[in-house]
Write a protein that binds this DNA or RNA. Structure first.
Lengths: 133, 133
DNA sequence: GCAGTGACTTTAAATATGTAAGTAACACGT
DNA sequence: ACGTGTTACTTACATATTTAAAGTCACTGC
């Protein structure tokens, strides 16, 4: 009835605030998403490689997170062969630039959570994925 | 009944892996926890100040997160007056050292998410909470 | 032709989150 | 003394997300 616009309070999916922390958490704020980014930074590229990580991500969560990261422009999916068809995921610049966020977490954790790797140990792991002894 | 120990597979609350990213996410990996830490870094100290933040944290979530952060040794709760009784939350060293994690998120968000503050803008906000015009 | 692999999807149950209302202790004004 | 307001929460319940487990589909290698 009334011509008064019903002041649409929150277009769903909209940012919570102009704060970068809040916006980052809107996208990456859960227990799994950044672990996928970590795996990619370490050199993993395929669905099954992500599944083999020690944290044991549930397969449906992995599929959904890969979809979201792709939609957010943080990763790209490419088919690297037919017959059988196989896919590789890679980080975009936007994804690679999350490196400092993960590094600061590693530094913090190493200082306050016993048993976690140092930044140096993590750096030494980069690219060592799937290289068999 | 049976004496056979039911092989308790996972002592709940145990780390998922030795990776600092995973351990950090076990503690802080959700949409709200780091926003409370952010508010504390900005100078907020009371329950109602946290509630007034633009993201609008639900009150039960806020209470639960404050409890968890306290148990994790990231914040401390102190009564700063009786009659009426009032509480202030403060960061411990462990909590203050999350600064670099939040800063790297702000930098990333400012580069890739339109409309988010720069690190400089955020730094200028520190301590400006509750100062009325 | 059949077990095995990679990359997922589907289903149901457990858990977490969001929304709203309620509680308790106290201060302030009338 | 009473009603209103503030701070700091708790409780109840509906909804959404996560988890575990099993299933699908294309294909390969034996």
């Amino acid at each position: 009835m009334s011509g008064a616009s019903p002041e649409r309070e929150k277009p769903p999916g909209c940012k919570r605030s102009a704060c970068g922390v809040a916006s980052t958490l809107d996208l990456l704020g859960d227990k799994w998403t950044l672990l996928v980014v970590r795996d990619l930074l370490l050199g993993k590229r395929t669905y099954s490689e992500f599944q083999k990580s020690p944290e044991g991500i549930p397969t449906n969560i992995l599929a959904e997170r890969l979809r979201r990261l792709q939609q957010a422009g943080i990763i790209e999916k490419m088919q690297y062969q037919d017959r059988p068809v196989r896919y590789a995921y890679t980080l975009t610049d936007k994804g690679r630039d999350l490196g400092p966020v993960l590094r600061s977490m590693v530094v913090w954790a190493n200082k306050y959570i016993p048993g976690t790797f140092t930044l140096e140990e993590v750096d030494a792991m980069i690219g060592q994925v799937g290289r068999d002894a």
